[in-house]
């Protein structure tokens, strides 16, 4: 009974995002930005690409950085600081896997518009509240901490009508973490089959997007792209709670200021 007064003593600790600004959302360095015209000698850019442990940086045909592979080790930033830099902001999720590759030529806006329209038709019924079923397909454990943090009072996604459910029968969103190990292929597919339509599929974290630095061994695990029809890609190692919130609201078309691409691909 004393807990009630204790719960009140520190006032409101909940973030104002998405209705208002939150400096932790805006300032957290959730991605690496790429400036193709950065004043770095070619050999240091090449050294940055060679140092990347997940081969996320391509030098040819054009310089590009795949945020879906990036595990945020910061080696490229150390090698070529004028070309690669930490990019503040948790708005890193995207509706297309290709949109996570910054510097690469983008597809036409029409294709994206079509994708977005199809998704918003699907989620039209989910506008008030949604239930998420989380599945770990072979994570290192940190992704689960970040997903679980969404219900703590700082993020408190319940205020946005977002709930976690144990039963796939009640779930609208499948939120998958981990590299997609051979052993988890069947369980995750069975979970998806048990979910009633319409469903939205989210891959959270570099492990789920591309397998990261762990994936690609003898148990497979190069991400979920080939296993599941993913709708939203959230990069990060692991994806932070704010990045997860951004991705979930992107899927639902409920972002306060919907960027045309889900992400503009460059830091401002």
């Amino acid at each position: 009974m004393f807990w009630a007064t204790r719960g009140l003593r520190d006032g409101v600790v909940t973030s104002r995002w998405p209705a208002g600004d939150d400096s932790y959302f805006d300032d957290f360095r959730a991605a690496v930005a790429l400036d193709e015209d950065g004043a770095d000698p070619a050999n240091s850019v090449a050294a940055a690409a060679a140092a990347c442990p997940t081969e996320a940086i391509a030098v040819t045909p054009a310089l590009s950085l795949d945020r879906g592979r990036c595990i945020m080790c910061g080696r490229c930033v150390a090698h070529a600081p004028n070309t690669f830099s930490w990019s503040p902001g948790s708005d890193v999720s995207a509706l297309r896997r290709g949109a996570l590759v910054v510097g690469a030529t983008d597809e036409s806006d029409d294709a994206l518009d079509e994708l977005q329209a199809a998704l918003s038709r699907r989620v039209r019924r989910l506008r008030r509240s949604v239930h998420i079923r989380h599945v770990d397909t072979g994570s290192d454990g940190s992704d689960e901490w970040e997903v679980a943090a969404l219900t703590n009072p700082v993020y408190d996604v319940h205020r946005l009508g977002i709930f976690f459910t144990a039963s796939p029968r009640h779930a609208d969103i499948l939120l998958a973490t981990g590299i997609g190990t051979a052993g988890m292929v069947e369980p995750v597919l069975r979970t998806l089959q048990a979910m009633p339509g319409p469903t939205v599929l989210i891959a959270a974290g570099a492990d789920a997007v591309s397998g990261g630095v762990i994936g690609g061994g003898y148990t497979g695990g190069t991400g979920l792209a080939e296993l599941l029809p993913i709708d939203v890609w959230i990069p990060g190692a692991p994806a932070t709670p704010f990045a997860l919130m951004h991705g979930i609201l992107l899927a639902l078309g409920r972002l306060p200021r919907p960027a045309p691409d889900g992400h503009d691909g460059r830091s401002s």
Binding site: A166, G178, M184, P187
Partner: peptide, 9 residues
């Protein structure tokens, strides 16, 4: 292996 909540498998 899929647990009832946000858990590792």
């Amino acid at each position: 292996p899929v647990r009832s909540g946000v858990f590792e498998s």
